[in-house]
Design a binder for these strands. Structure first.
Lengths: 339, 339
DNA sequence: CAGATCTTTCAAACCGGTTCGAACTTCTTT
DNA sequence: AAAGAAGTTCGAACCGGTTTGAAAGATCTG
């Protein structure tokens, strides 16, 4: 059942039917009801391709997965994607996922030229993220999850990594810890940099030294968390507290601590950042982990809403948000052992 | 730059240009080269919406994420999706991800009516999966990752769960284990059922009892793996070997074993199924885990290829594959302790 | 009651491709 | 030389919506 058939059936023109269904004001209310009723009865749904061609809007948001990389293996990204798809659905849009075999840039160019998406979504922003400039150059509207220090203005949603770390450091310092390590994610990620800045600043305010050796960057995996923690514990000035940028790093961190014969809470303290994944819950740790929390899924949903607003013509300058991070106290953060 | 402009520029008709670019035979070779050259020079890419409207094909494969559920939190599904997007890209298609706020079925209906996708992709098949029937009823072509026991024929790719478990049991039984537990994923999943069947059969062939108490189903999480293993170890007839259906279950299983003061390899053996996620590698376990292995990412890629073949008109009956599973021996499987 | 205004509807053009059927060349065949 | 076949190219229709501009009918104004 298409528009012409529906119109024919009703004895109306395509124009009127289209307008009735799209909520235009110049349609008689009685006619509108009759049309809506018929559309429901015949199970009519506009053909998306036709609608897109006519309106010039694609009705979809684009995400490019870097082909060779393991970004998708990252469950945090997966969860973000789920939130995104969810939010897009609520806004009546869909998600166009394009995995590129020929390089990420080629993917963006293709999507732009083919007018396949209305807005590109970018996540895992780098400190210097070339993609933003590329997309603005290609004339593709963009919304990002995360932000960079650069001067470009673009709609984004980010969480306050810096403040999250600050509060975690404050808590640990307040408990008496002097040597607080930061086990972070990839160094080229903007979020990692923000965390490092927050760590430096918070330690500085407390009059504690942010020793370079107490900061470790690397992939956000269990494996790297384990190795980084082993290395840190082997230092002459081994830290008494660990800040982990992700739950996976925290898993490895906790395993390393256990393997060194230490007990979390009693000998060392751990605070992790929790993105709210259902598979690695802080309560499942022994002892339960103190965390800074912000749901990456909700963030994805909100990013979709921002993208929809952008398409709707909202002023890009008003479409940026930085969410606060919750600090949730559990048993893994305690006063350091007396020496 | 659109087709009409390009044609005008070349002094040709839209028809000829379209045909030249799409490889039709009735175009003069010289003309074709001229057209291709111009298309490259002007950076021409056909508008996807227009192409879709004209051809009736959407050029995209659909995936519906069940909205409320935590399926996406599942990194295995994320990895599958990455493979899918990757394979789709290689076939020149895209992935349409639709997260439904109003129920999974509504999502399928919408996609079908709007002709938004050429093929639906289904994963995580249930033992009795109503979606297959629904989609065939909606007239949507479908390719699944996994298979059900039902009589319906549909293109699918699956791995040989049954044989994987059989081989793992054979290895353990050969080492001398008598009580081999199966820590499985959700009971309503077809894969879980296949594993259970394989477990039963393999034990039976070895003359060992498949005691009901030694089979535990539940969510494929670290948490559940831990609890299931604790419960199993508390049995009067505690198993000496554990088969885990996922690496997450295995993580929890190993933690539980350690917490009970046992040592993997010496006191109990563990074999897990590894989907090849970069974040939880069997080598990172202590000791390294013996696994049955099959890359879920590759599977996703292949599913996309099958879907492309289906659109291309291949006979659906020829588009099914069951992949064998590798058994990779590492240190977590050893002979049981003498009593 | 004529003329202006508002409401409601419609035919036709448009979005940017694909494809059918016809037409025009050029080359064989008889 | 006429007829037939093959090779190229083109105009026009089509896919299924949206949107413009005009028109018909109803209501209001002076």
């Amino acid at each position: 059942m298409n528009l012409r058939e529906l119109a024919q059936h009703l004895g109306l023109s395509k124009t009127t039917v289209s307008r009735a269904l799209n909520g235009f004001s110049e349609v008689n209310e009685e006619t509108r009801l009759r049309v809506q009723e018929a559309a429901r009865r015949f199970n009519y749904t506009p053909n998306v391709s036709a609608k897109r061609l006519a309106t010039g809007e694609s009705g979809a948001f684009g995400v490019v997965l870097p082909g060779a990389s393991t970004e998708m293996a990252d469950p945090v990204f997966g969860e973000f994607l789920a939130g995104l798809a969810d939010g897009a659905g609520r806004c009546g849009r869909d998600l166009y996922v394009n995995a590129t075999f020929d390089g990420e840039e080629a993917g963006y160019r293709r999507l732009a030229r083919a007018k396949a998406v209305d807005v590109m979504i970018l996540a895992n922003l780098k400190v210097e993220d070339l993609r933003i400039r590329l997309l603005s150059h290609l004339g593709l509207q963009t919304v990002t999850c995360g932000r960079t220090a650069g001067s470009l203005v673009y709609p984004h949603l980010d969480i306050d990594h810096e403040d999250g770390v600050r509060r975690a450091v404050d808590l640990l310092a307040g408990l008496g810890h002097k040597a607080i390590a930061l086990v972070s994610g990839p160094a080229d990620l903007s979020a990692s940099e923000q965390r490092m800045v927050g760590w430096h600043a918070a330690l500085g305010r407390r009059g504690l030294a942010a020793e370079a050796g107490l900061f470790v960057a690397g992939p956000a995996t269990e494996d790297h968390g384990y190795r980084a923690t082993r290395a840190l514990l082997a230092l002459p000035t081994a830290p008494t507290a660990f800040l982990c940028a992700s739950m996976f790093l925290a898993s490895g961190c906790c395993r390393a601590i256990g393997d060194c014969g230490l007990k979390i809470g009693r000998d060392v303290s751990v605070i992790a950042h929790d993105d709210g994944l259902a598979t690695v819950r802080p309560e499942a740790f022994e002892p339960a982990l103190t965390t800074t929390f912000s749901s990456i899924r909700s963030a994805g949903g909100r990013v979709a809403e921002l993208a929809a607003a952008l398409v709707g013509g909202a002023d890009p300058a008003t479409l940026s948000e930085v969410w606060p991070v919750d600090l949730i106290f559990r048993d893994s953060a305690q006063a350091p052992p007396r020496r």
